[in-house]
Design a protein around this nucleic acid. Structure first.
Ligand code: SF4
Ligand code: SF4
Lengths: 162, 162
DNA sequence: CTATTGTGGACCTGTGATATCCATAATAAA
DNA sequence: TTTATTATGGATATCACAGGTCCACAATAG
């Protein structure tokens, strides 16, 4: 259970694009050189980010990428969901097993009522709760907020030096 | 990014073992039949749970598995970590790239000082935070707590029927 | 028109999840 | 002590997917 390298790359690419004194339209070459990732692979990732509306891309001379919206509105969750997909953390694989009855109906021998609604899965409920906690946290952190913190740290270091 | 089926199976197996009126030493046959998973595969999972001290196993006639400690002390996090491993959610893949400087030192052109300590990674910091939130939540839910809730629900249903 | 730059498809490789089979070890009961 | 039973661990198979390369093509600015 670990985020893929693609997520790593995507985050770093966006952080680069979000850097204050950046001329618009950063080319794949610059990104590739900065991150140390092959152009071929990185372009796949950028393409995905574009399809999901995180960045804009323009081909042609002096083309390149730029953020499609302010860095403050690009959350970690956004990026992660683009790269890792939006499936849920836990998905039951055999909801018609004998086990299921025990947890959804707790062994009650009532005839199969298909109302299904108050008989909602408790395992999934726990896991969904976990997922929501995780997502909420990831939504509170944006590309901008990380950049801000980096700047703050830099400022403090400079201060100490003098 | 999804938990594996093994985790699903493990959770259900433990829920079965934790059931109140269970004779000790539940055999792999019973588990397999209840969960609807092959004996071969399920035994692998049980073996892993044993190696991590979640269950005890005794071979031989009338042998089987039982919880190694009270169900209230087996958390979801425990189970998930046994099955999914304990790697962290995010692991940097190229900490010596050009990017790294930007985020750890924020572009300061100071000579490479290898003190490393106040120059801690901000991306990892965010991700570690996310992981801790997730883990904390998963630690608050145990096999017992889920079982309790299932019982409570059952009780309410019975009440409504009368 | 042309050089430049992103897009998308085909393809390759290694790894890990899922799963089965079997030989062996351990154990309780007869 | 033997025997039937039950868990263990190694070997193996299959399959999907992460990670990555290459290339032909589309789009665009100048
Ligand atoms: S209780 Fe939930 S997780 Fe378990 S089998 Fe039913 S639906 Fe699936
Ligand atoms: S800033 Fe953090 S994530 Fe980025 S390269 Fe450095 S160590 Fe890795």
């Amino acid at each position: 259970m670990q985020y893929s390298k693609s997520t790593d790359y995507a985050l770093h690419a966006l952080l680069h694009l979000g850097h204050p004194e950046r001329h618009a339209n950063v080319g794949i070459k610059e990104l590739s050189a900065t991150l140390g990732v092959s152009e071929s692979y990185l372009s796949k990732i950028m393409s995905k980010l574009r399809q999901d509306g995180i960045v804009r891309a323009v081909p042609g001379v002096n083309g390149g990428y730029e953020l499609a919206r302010p860095a403050g509105r690009i959350t970690f969750l956004d990026v992660i969901q683009v790269m890792e997909g939006r499936e849920q953390l836990f998905e039951c694989s055999n909801s018609k097993s004998q086990q299921h009855q025990l947890l959804a109906d707790d062994g009650a021998d009532e005839p199969v009522r298909e109302r299904r609604g108050n008989g909602e899965c408790l395992v999934e409920k726990v896991m969904l709760g976990a997922q929501q906690h995780l997502h909420q946290y990831l939504q509170e952190h944006t590309i901008q907020s990380l950049l801000d913190e980096a700047f703050k740290r830099h400022f403090n270091l400079e201060g100490n030096k003098k």
